[in-house]
Design a protein around this nucleic acid. Structure first.
Lengths: 240, 240
DNA sequence: CCAATTACGAGAGCAGTGCTCTTGCTTTTG
DNA sequence: CAAAAGCAAGAGCACTGCTCTCGTAATTGG
């Protein structure tokens, strides 16, 4: 789209990247609350006011890191989906889609364990008085889209066995399906959104320490829970 | 245990409470990150250094607020449980325990919606470099204990229909059951812990704005999801 | 009942923060 | 080649958590 025009623009891109890298380093080391513009500038050998040429405020820097984090976990999920799809490409074998579901969930979990502070940044408490800017909603939905894709594939190739919706929830489920998964029947779309949020409940409790002294065999526990979650959206296991 | 001995001790208790109240007010208004010791002191007409006679650091003040928040939501859950138990005291009617489960979950949700910053304090990202002190783990488990109690009642009075554990998860499930719910079979205890964390996944996504532009009919959606969650721990609905 | 101890409030001060503004210098542009 | 725009640096403001000292008040032991 836009080629680099001169030394100035090239330098700007590099400095911007260096700031984000250093900020990410501090984020990983100490958490978002202790990320300091002055410390970033200090580490980069510049004075703090110079940094404002690149990010108009601390919040804007954080927003950039949030977008990067969403993209990072989103790309992880997409890669896991591709890999799992390549490994068992046989279309009609039952359990295929459930296996992909679990693989993607585990990949997201691995990412979260490897980047706890970035996870906290996007799935923990929103930062003070902060409302997510428009630019974040695209990257933020990438993980969800992967699960939607799996459910759509499963529905198309294997069919999905799910009880009909209650009358109370039908209009909402139809709206959800129309808005973000037109290829999915409403009876699948609603449980899918619920499962999506519940997956991050499992992750948050593990990452944020709520499972301390409660759950020990974390991975086995997670795989089991996530498999059960897949059943609530109608994915069929190997027993059909 | 300890009676108030003099004017000094009485004053200390009152000032401590006043500090916590003002801090809670600021927490509700601006969130934990913007809670400032100096602002609290200012509002109370004292100088900031005087506040350190009552709380040795900002983190200690936050810890006190965390404990209060856990107690607040815990008491809410317990009260909802008592009320629901009183309303349908018939022991053997199917659906009784599921109704209690949903009632408690909705009460917790109402509390979270009414106290979003306190919710964020205890179920959001842990504050910077902060590890939960011993004093929090008691209050922190009150909500969970309510759900355990419901499951135990259901298991004792109605029985619970759940598939057997996978071999992989059996030892972990047995440990969990032995540690925190000795009255419950392991096949129930493990899904119960999963359901507990998934419940807070639903809540966090709603409170933290992840459902914006996704879920509109929040309460209906929540009730449905939480009912489904109850089924995963074996609670039977009215249809038996 | 009085002296010693202890708890407390106030103030000054330190190191750190986000952010603004001005001042020169360099690169880019018309 | 001159004007305009981009940039780094420094000083400075208002704020933060926290420490230390110093007088005063309440509490306690003899």
């Amino acid at each position: 789209m836009s080629a680099i025009r001169g030394a100035r623009e090239r330098a700007r891109i590099e400095v911007t990247a260096a700031i984000k890298d250093e900020a990410r380093k501090q984020l990983a080391a100490e958490g978002a609350a202790k990320l300091s513009l002055r410390a970033v500038a200090r580490e980069l050998g510049m004075v703090s006011s110079a940094l404002y040429r690149y990010f108009p405020s601390r919040d804007e820097l954080l927003t950039a890191l949030i977008i990067d984090a969403y993209d990072s976990v989103g790309e992880t999920a997409e890669r896991a989906h591709r890999t799992a799809a390549a490994e068992n490409a046989a279309p009609a074998r039952p359990g295929t889609h459930l296996a992909r579901w679990v693989a993607v969930a585990c990949a997201v979990r691995d990412w979260a364990l490897a980047h706890p502070h970035e996870y906290a940044l996007i799935y923990g408490s929103p930062v003070p008085g902060y409302t997510a800017p428009q630019a974040t909603i695209g990257p933020a939905s990438r993980v969800g889209l992967v699960f939607i894709a799996i459910a759509e594939d499963a529905h198309r190739e294997e069919g999905i066995g799910l009880p009909p919706l209650t009358a109370e929830l039908r209009p909402e489920a139809e709206r959800i399906a129309a808005d973000l998964a037109p290829g999915l029947p409403p009876a699948v779309a609603a449980p899918l959104v619920a499962a999506w949020s519940q997956l991050f409940g499992l992750l948050s409790f593990e990452i944020f320490g709520q499972f301390n002294r409660v759950v020990e065999a974390r991975e086995a526990f997670f795989r089991q829970a996530v498999t059960e979650l897949a059943r609530t959206v109608g994915l069929l296991d190997r027993r059909g």
